[in-house]
Amino acid sequence: MHNSDQFTKQVKSGTNIQENKKRYETLLDKICLMAGVVTGILQLESTYGFLAFIITYLMAVIVYTLWICNGRPGSFYENTISDLLFDNFTRELMGFIMAWTFSFALIG
């Protein structure tokens, strides 16, 4: 019996996936740095600041998935959840904390 699964499976390009990841990372960098600066300008402290980060990050992921990926992130990424949600989390959190601390100290 012919195994048709092998041929009906969707083929993905590794180079394009890398490029998609890079673009997503750059977009998140921009969003999280700006969110950090805004949080600092608003003089938000402790929990409110981290809450601002979590909300911004999740909003960015949701908007990216629904708007830019047209609700089908599986077509552009291999492991959707890890690629879109977890891979960049620490990096963006550090960037956010830096921008937040900087603008908080500068304005305050």
């Binding site: 990372e25 960098d29 921009k30 740095l33 990096r91 960037g95 830096m98 921008a99 601390t101």
Partner: peptide
Amino acid sequence: SWYFISVLGLNPVFNL
């Protein structure tokens, strides 16, 4: 400490 925070958080800035 600002130095440490910068070391950890500047990666996105360099990327941009």
